[in-house]
Computed example of a mutant assay.
Amino acid sequence: MEKSDAIRHAVRQVPAPELPAGFTPRLMERMRREAARRERRETWLLTAGGVGCFTALISACVTALWPDFRLRIPDFALPRPELPHIGLPHIELPRLALPEEDKSLVAMCVCIALAFLVLLLADLMIHRHIASSRN
């Protein structure tokens, strides 16, 4: 017990170290820069992920709902890479056979879903902008 009391007494006797001049403002500025960098990275990743999801959704809908749809641009010919066969089964999206009168209804539902997703992304971006302007 005497040793721990002696250590506590010695620690209390030592003066607190002084911070260098301008330490607090430099630390706060660094924290603000890190927060801004993190927010920009999150916004970029969110936007890239949203664009990727929208692209996948649109291409899946076009592939499933309109199997006869072919993109025909004469100068746009990219070689299709052949992936090595590693024993996995070939995955193919299902093809839906809809009557002609239902195709316009399905197209309208897909457009409404896409509009909802776009508005949801816009809402998120606006809320992030408002939150960042408050800080």
Results as ranks from 00 to 15, higher is better:
D5A: 14
A6W: 06
A10L: 11
A10I: 11
V11Q: 04
V11M: 07
Q13R: 15
V14H: 10
P15V: 15
E18S: 15
L19G: 03
G22S: 08
F23P: 03
T24P: 00
P25W: 09
P25Y: 05
R26P: 01
L27G: 04
L27S: 07
M28P: 02
E29Y: 08
M31I: 07
R32T: 07
A35D: 02
E42A: 15
T43K: 01
W44G: 02
W44E: 12
L45R: 14
L46N: 04
L46V: 01
L46A: 11
G49D: 09
G50V: 08
G50D: 07
G52T: 04
C53Q: 06
L57P: 02
L57C: 05
I58R: 00
C61Q: 08
V62S: 11
L65F: 13
W66L: 12
P67V: 06
P67W: 03
D68A: 12
R70K: 09
L71I: 09
R72M: 10
R72I: 07
P74S: 11
D75L: 08
F76E: 06
A77K: 13
A77C: 08
L78N: 00
R80C: 00
P84D: 15
P84K: 15
P84F: 03
H85V: 10
I86F: 09
L88D: 09
L88W: 12
P89S: 04
P89I: 04
I91R: 04
I91G: 03
R95T: 00
L96G: 01
A97T: 08
D102N: 08
D102E: 13
S104H: 06
L105K: 12
L105S: 11
V106C: 09
V106K: 02
M108E: 14
C109I: 12
C109V: 12
L114D: 00
L114F: 03
A115E: 01
L117R: 03
L117D: 03
L119W: 10
L119G: 14
L121E: 06
L121Q: 11
A122W: 09
A122K: 05
A122R: 07
D123K: 14
D123S: 11
L124A: 10
I126L: 13
H127V: 07
H127E: 05
I130P: 00
S133H: 08
S133Y: 09
